[in-house]
């Protein structure tokens, strides 16, 4: 659906070269929600703006449905852009237009007939829950309501793709939740592919199917959200994950464990989906005569999947411990032996 191949973007500011995006290759599938996360200045906005050519890449190609955007003439590019909605952190509504007129904008730009505009705008305002506010001006709305208007406006041209540039970064946590719910609903009901960028791992966790992590203009890690959560490779990814749940054991606890005569092994078990239901601790005790002791546990929801992390200390015969680890690994659980001695 969306294909970025070796995309780079260089800015020149007073003869100073800024490489905002460096050699990014990624593919977004039809119907998925693809998240791009990174710290401020990582190049996220520049990258997402390359997808609809608001920013022309210095190098590399951007293809939508197999069509290279660079090959399009001005008019064709404008037509393609109508199929790519975009929403922004700052909403970017016309302050001199009512809610209704703001949502009608893409239809009017395309010269749609009046009755079609009335019908479509009414429908969209219904979807975003602002039907009764259609005569108001943006200055009379809250941030969340403004973003809803922006979403309705972005949907007015029946886009196949919705680009979200930090759509929730200016909103409070509760409003963020409701906007994310709305995006999820739009993705499911209307099968619109969504690309969103954010600096909050929470947003990725809640609605994204796949994620790319950006650092200094490069994509340093990408994959299914669940995989990235259970097997983060890069330090920056681990840092982002830490912002929503801390898997490191406190130093004081580790010190305590070290003082035991038989400290045993510390295991971190990550599990997703059905395995949550299995009584693994009981199995360890019964089958292998081990004594598992829970040190830390966390269960969370990653989009539709339950994802849990458990840190346990097991004591028993070394051979039995190894057998227990093998058993757990056989269950497709993610097992990691924590080296606490070092």
């Amino acid at each position: 659906m969306i294909q970025l191949k070796n995309v780079s973007k260089v800015f020149y500011q007073n003869k100073h070269k800024i490489e905002a995006v460096k050699n990014v290759t990624l593919e977004v599938q039809q119907g998925e929600i693809f998240g791009i996360i990174g710290f401020s200045g990582a190049g996220k906005s520049t990258l997402i703006r390359c997808i609809n050519f608001l920013e022309r890449p210095t190098e590399g190609t951007v293809s939508i449905n197999g069509v290279d955007l660079a090959s399009l003439k001005e008019g064709q590019l404008r037509k393609t852009r109508r199929k790519i909605g975009m929403i922004f952190q700052t909403f970017n509504l016309l302050s001199s237009n009512t809610v209704f007129d703001n949502v009608a904008t893409p239809l009017r730009l395309a010269g749609a007939p009046r009755n079609e505009i009335n019908r479509k705008v009414g429908e969209l305002l219904e979807i975003v829950g602002l039907k009764e506010k259609e005569a108001m001006y943006p200055s009379q709305l809250s941030g969340g309501q403004k973003q809803r208007v922006a979403i309705a406006r972005a949907l007015a041209s029946d886009p196949e793709i919705l680009l979200c540039d930090e759509a929730t970064s200016a909103l409070d946590p509760q409003t963020t939740e409701s906007i994310l719910e709305l995006l999820l609903e739009i993705n499911r009901k209307y099968h619109i592919t969504i690309v969103l960028i954010t600096h909050e791992m929470h947003v990725i966790k809640k609605i994204c199917d796949r994620v790319a992590v950006m650092e200094n203009g490069k994509v340093v890690e990408q994959g299914k959200v669940l995989d990235v959560f259970s097997r983060p490779q890069q330090a920056i990814t681990k840092n982002f994950i830490k912002t929503i749940f801390d898997v490191n054991l406190p130093e004081s606890l580790l010190a305590q464990i070290k003082q035991h005569d038989d400290p045993g092994q510390l295991l971190r078990i990550s599990f997703a989906g059905d395995h949550v239901a299995e009584p693994i601790l009981a199995e360890l005790a019964v089958k292998f005569a081990l004594r598992p002791n829970i040190m830390y546990g966390n269960i969370t929801q990653i989009k539709d999947t339950t994802f849990g992390t458990l840190v346990i200390r097991v004591t028993g015969e070394p051979a039995a411990i190894q057998a227990g680890i093998d058993y757990l690994s056989g269950l497709e659980l993610q097992i990691e032996v924590i080296d606490y001695a070092g």
């Binding site: 608001l54 016309l94 922006a150």
Partner: peptide
């Protein structure tokens, strides 16, 4: 006039003329 609004119109496929008449002149009234 907020550059963001101009950008939003560009992302909606507005022509340059539409941006001048519907964004610049209108918002700046």
């Amino acid at each position: 006039v907020d550059r963001g609004v101009i950008e939003a119109f560009q992302s909606m496929g507005a022509t340059h003329r539409q941006i001048i008449t519907r964004v610049l002149l209108r918002e700046a009234r």
